[in-house]
Simulated scan of single mutants.
Amino acid sequence: MVTASTPSPDHLRLLVKVARMYHERGLRQPEIAERLNMSQARVSRLLKEAADRSVVRTVVVSPEGVHAELEEALVKEYGLRDAVVADAGGAGTDVIPALAAATATYLDATLKGGDVIGISSWSATLLEAVNVMPAKTNSVAHEVVQIVGGSGSPEVQLHATRLTSRLAELTGARPVFAPCAALVHSRELRDLLSKEPDVAEVMQSWGRLTLALVGIGTLEPSPLLRRSGNAITPEDKRQLEELGAVGDVCTRYFDAEGRPVNADFDDRIIGIEPDQLRAVDRRIGVAGGEAKVAAIRGAARGAWINILITDADTAKALLKNP
């Protein structure tokens, strides 16, 4: 049981990460602050807390449930900027609660102010993350922007809206909604919608992003995406399989090496373009579970993400067959 004096596993994970970077890898505090996108004062406080809690002695000791070695191995193997590995409790466990908690802690620690955050609209994991994320006392973001169409079936529309509005509320930012579907019926309709003032505004804001927070999907749409009406059809799925696609970020599909695949429905998507996404400085991908290993690997190989938040079993699978 976690009490007021007992830090959460996610906070312990952050203590261990900072301590290892400083004591074992010899990085200076300003370097650590830059790499983890936090203030130098916070790095100093975390190092002191690590010593107070006996995390730092003559060596760095990882508490149970903290996977610093896996995180460092993922960074090295896939050329990531950072990695967070959550302990989800073993095979067969629902990984969403652990990933959500890890994501909330990571954002709480690394959002410093002035960020323009792009967020994918249809992720149950990201929705759970904002549900458990604490509110910041000061504004740490300028805007929270939907980077793929956020309109869908009325019964699930509120999920996409809440995800964006709640993250904006927590970070003191202005929410910017994409008032259209992610996948429309024709290229002509996409072109017409793109000229609408509200849609044009959100598309222009994609060029200002400093951080993208995205889920990583497989060819099998998630229940939330399917219910939204933005999922691909069975015919689209068959074509993607023929093209060698393994996963997607914001409805942009890629193969096992992370190369974009050109599906027939690409010109019907209202969402951030692949090159535009990969130009964002920090691209946080949140995903886990056995079914998503190939998709996560492709997303990392193709630089769709450069920060990964996943679970321990998935991390081991990614390192077993990189």
Score class of each variant (00 low, 15 high):
13 R>H: 14
16 V>A: 09
16 V>L: 05
22 Y>H: 14
26 G>P: 00
30 P>E: 00
38 M>N: 02
47 L>E: 04
50 A>Y: 06
51 A>W: 10
56 V>T: 07
58 T>S: 14
60 V>F: 04
68 A>L: 00
68 A>P: 03
72 E>P: 00
79 G>R: 01
80 L>C: 09
80 L>H: 09
81 R>L: 12
81 R>A: 13
84 V>D: 03
90 G>T: 07
90 G>S: 03
91 A>H: 09
96 I>N: 08
99 L>V: 08
105 T>A: 15
107 L>K: 00
112 K>R: 15
113 G>D: 01
115 D>Q: 12
132 V>R: 00
134 P>F: 08
138 N>F: 14
144 V>A: 02
145 V>T: 03
146 Q>E: 06
147 I>S: 02
154 P>L: 04
158 L>Y: 15
162 R>K: 13
164 T>K: 12
165 S>E: 15
178 A>C: 13
189 L>I: 15
192 L>E: 15
193 L>T: 11
194 S>T: 15
195 K>H: 15
201 E>M: 14
202 V>K: 05
204 Q>G: 15
204 Q>S: 15
214 V>D: 01
216 I>Y: 08
224 L>C: 07
226 R>N: 13
228 S>E: 05
232 I>R: 05
233 T>R: 13
234 P>C: 08
234 P>S: 07
235 E>G: 12
237 K>S: 15
238 R>T: 15
245 A>S: 10
246 V>A: 09
246 V>I: 13
247 G>Y: 10
248 D>I: 12
253 Y>Q: 02
254 F>P: 01
255 D>L: 11
259 R>F: 13
269 I>H: 02
275 D>R: 12
279 A>E: 06
286 V>L: 04
287 A>K: 02
290 E>L: 11
291 A>P: 00
302 G>M: 05
302 G>W: 06
306 N>Y: 10
317 A>T: 10
318 L>K: 05
